[in-house]
């Protein structure tokens, strides 16, 4: 035992000295990753202090004060509700629309039409949220196209300022996410569909199965593992309802429904300089994320799917 322990380091250093070049190529970058990813974790101590930038980490310790404050803050309860609601809407919309579109695209035989539609539908994925927010607020303005269509269809009489409607906010975010990502999200499903054995479809056709029967009995079961893994992993990100789109579309009128946990953190930190509370909020989110991610990973393993971490 002891001889192995003695020998290993000696061999290790000897080997490493012959691999100096690889070490020089990787060590600085690994140190960089440590500095920019792991070192900031030390900043979590701010959550247990009355942090003042002037005093730095010599600020007084206050124990769990900010966590107690957080969980008794009515605003935080509201923020959690908004975050979870928007996440859930994004999750459900994201999956149903992407799977629906992928199933439709998969049935399009004309290659050029299919790839043209795909190319166009991926485009919004590459736009910034600033651009998307600009487009959304133009579309939803009182004289915008959305109001015009609703008026033409006789659904509403007078134009509605949609971004001023608090209860519409979650759904605006949900549909905006669909608009931006639906095409992009089909890629992974289409890739899964392309691995399905074509002879299954041929056999089904000979047996007299219609299109819908083939989709239900061959395509959907074929992409089920992909769907399961993606749903589980996305449940692990349930605290991430997005930040930019809410930040850009929020206003005084929809504030009660638009504030997500990230905006709460930014508001307390940047506007009020309460870095301790902001860090406590962010830390709460990170810890929940990690717990959910590990749980999701464990469930994924239990179900016999590939583990993702």
């Amino acid at each position: 035992m002891s001889s192995i322990a003695m020998n290993k380091p000696a061999g290790f250093w000897k080997k490493l000295s012959t691999q100096r070049q690889l070490l020089w190529m990787s060590l600085p970058i690994v140190l960089y990753v440590i500095l920019f990813t792991y070192v900031p974790l030390a900043g979590w101590t701010m959550a247990f202090q009355d942090f003042k930038p002037a005093k730095g980490f010599a600020s007084p310790w206050v124990g769990l004060k900010w966590f107690v404050y957080l969980f008794s803050d009515d605003q935080f309860v509201m923020v959690m509700r908004n975050t979870l609601a928007m996440s859930l809407i994004n999750l459900v919309f994201g999956f149903t629309f992407a799977i629906g579109l992928a199933l439709t695209l998969n049935e399009v035989a004309a290659k050029r039409i299919k790839s043209l539609a795909q190319t166009i539908s991926y485009l919004p994925h590459f736009l910034s949220w600033v651009v998307v927010a600009g487009i959304v607020s133009t579309m939803l303005s009182s004289d915008g196209v959305f109001n015009i269509i609703l008026k033409a269809l006789g659904i509403i009489k007078d134009p509605i300022v949609w971004l001023g409607q608090p209860k519409a906010f979650w759904w605006i975010v949900g549909f905006t996410n669909v608009w931006k990502e639906v095409g992009w999200n089909t890629i992974i499903y289409l890739a899964a569909m392309s691995t399905i054995d074509p002879s299954l479809y041929e056999a089904a056709e000979i047996d007299g199965c219609g299109r819908l029967a083939r989709i239900r009995n061959i395509t959907l079961p074929g992409i089920k593992p992909t769907i399961v893994v993606l749903i589980i992993m996305n449940l692990g990100w349930i605290m991430e309802s997005g930040f930019e789109i809410q930040y850009l579309l929020r206003n005084g009128m929809n504030a009660d429904y638009s504030q997500s946990i990230d905006i709460y953190v930014v508001n307390y930190g940047m506007r009020q300089g309460n870095y301790s509370l902001a860090t406590a909020g962010g830390m709460f989110k990170s810890v929940v994320n990690i717990v959910l991610l590990l749980t999701a990973n464990w469930v994924s393993g239990k179900l016999g799917e590939e583990k993702l971490v």
Binding site: V30, V33, I34, L35, F36, T37, Y38, V39, P40, L41, A42, G43, W44, M46, P53, D262, V265, V266, G269, Y275, A278, T279, G282, M283, K285, S286, I290, L293, V309
Partner: peptide
């Protein structure tokens, strides 16, 4: 491992800000 785990570690807005 150090590099891959960095995908899941995020200290949050203000710890990064102060760094």
């Amino acid at each position: 491992l150090i590099v891959l785990l960095s995908m899941y570690v995020n200290a949050g807005l203000f710890p990064n800000y102060f760094l």
